[in-house]
Design a protein around this nucleic acid. Structure first.
Lengths: 246, 246
DNA sequence: CGACTTGTTGATGTACATCAAGGTACGTGG
DNA sequence: CCACGTACCTTGATGTACATCAACAAGTCG
């Protein structure tokens, strides 16, 4: 794995897992918690820029994000990078490697991160002995975000959609303060997400800011008028229903 | 459900399930087969054009495709249609509705189809009593095709990729005869898949045909030079590893 | 302090959308 | 059988959203 591993030596006990505070996640039954506790094998702390998983590899573990941001991406043969989506706290990383024996994309940390490590051999125990948890795993797999990228939309629509989408996801895990969010993406990340050039992204982002629906500074996003922003995005505001793991 | 339902009255017994012929799919243990047999509740035959599932609905069943083609799509607020991917025999339809209680896209039959119907209440039994099958379900969910659409590629690259992708998927379920495939898509479907205008798709498709790597006629696709086509698509030829359900 | 990463802006070319028209095949009712 | 509609494919003309190239400015870091 590239990047530095920060080993704290101390493990957060599952009873104090920071994820348990999120109301979007369901409560565990006591026996589920007991199982998950022995399921967890260690904690991993990494710096921003670390490659967590590499496309094509299968050696990986299965992680749950405790905090920090990451992104999933593919490198195209011509050297460009396509970002597929973003990883936030409570998301899984590495399920594909565990299920399919091979990652179909890479994952890189956007910020320093804290991850909870599950040994993939125990995934099978989970299926055999904890069908409720197995169901949750499938639920998460079925729900994984796709298609930020969809179809014939103009640059301004897609940027508005991306900002709104990220803000709403961050909101679900309490990363926002009122209408502001510490958003760790650079403009290059956005461009690589939306499949457009950096230059055009920059110009069009300024047009979005010009509508007074958002404020944007290098590591900070503020939503000023959510409905208007959604109207620019064309997309209907979808309720992302919450249902839970860990 | 829109469209006509063709009820044959006769149900294919699971032992004779047409899917069992595909070598890409793993064999069942006898007890798995026994379970699946009582799991199945009926068979559904529909005409081309039938809407199998509608975005936002949850009333749906869970289906396995026995034969025929379908496509998953979303309608955009401005009336355009974005096709997300295609459904072939042995694929699941409606897993999202069963797991998430709400479809995030619609599904329409491209040809006449034969589907195997599972009552979603029994999905829970499956998780409780057949962890191997539950594992397979998750496997399928994790594997679901995404991103035909990815990033900044030219029209000719994306068309070449789409043709190759569809051909290879069809090959896996023995829908091809040598280098030819009865491909039920119209040019409008391709345009809606790739997010480009019908006119531009048409012109660029002819450019692809001009390279002599494929032959295309309204309902038929023939691959003349797979490697050259892959080179046009830019994409590396990915081995799509097979592992199995039903 | 320079080296580097990130953001900003203008000039030029092109891949694509849109508009507009027409062509071919197939089916249906008279 | 023909007249007609409808679905699908084809082709040319025109405009624009975007990529690419090329600089430069501002912030950050060892």
């Amino acid at each position: 794995m590239a990047g530095t591993e920060l080993t704290s030596g101390w493990k957060v006990p599952c009873e104090q897992c920071p994820l348990r505070a999120y109301e979007a996640l369901r409560d565990f039954a006591p026996e589920e918690l007991a199982f998950v506790r022995q399921f967890k094998c260690s904690e991993l702390n990494v710096h921003a820029g670390t490659t967590l998983l590499l496309e094509g590899n299968n050696s990986a573990h299965l992680y749950t994000v405790l905090n920090g941001w990451a992104f999933r991406y593919k490198m195209l043969p011509d050297g460009r990078r396509q970002i597929l989506n973003y990883v936030l706290p409570a998301d899984f990383v590495g399920l594909q490697a565990s299920m399919l024996n091979e990652m179909q994309h890479s994952v890189e940390a956007l910020t320093d991160m804290m991850l909870c490590v599950f040994p993939r051999e125990k995934l099978w125990d989970l299926y055999r002995n904890h069908p409720t948890l197995a169901f949750d795993v499938t639920w998460l797999a079925a729900r994984e975000e796709k298609i930020l990228n969809v179809g014939r939309r103009t640059a301004i629509e897609r940027i508005a959609f991306l900002l709104l989408h990220l803000f709403m996801r961050a909101e679900q895990v309490r990363l926002t303060k009122g209408n502001t969010l510490a958003l760790p993406l650079t403009q290059q990340h956005m461009a690589d997400t939306l499949g457009m050039s950096l230059v055009h992204l920059n110009k069009t982002l300024k047009r979005v800011v010009g509508t007074k629906t958002v404020r944007w500074k290098p590591k900070s996003l503020e939503i000023l008028d959510r409905e208007a922003l959604a109207r620019i995005a064309t997309y209907d505001l979808v309720d992302r229903q919450a249902r839970p793991f860990i």
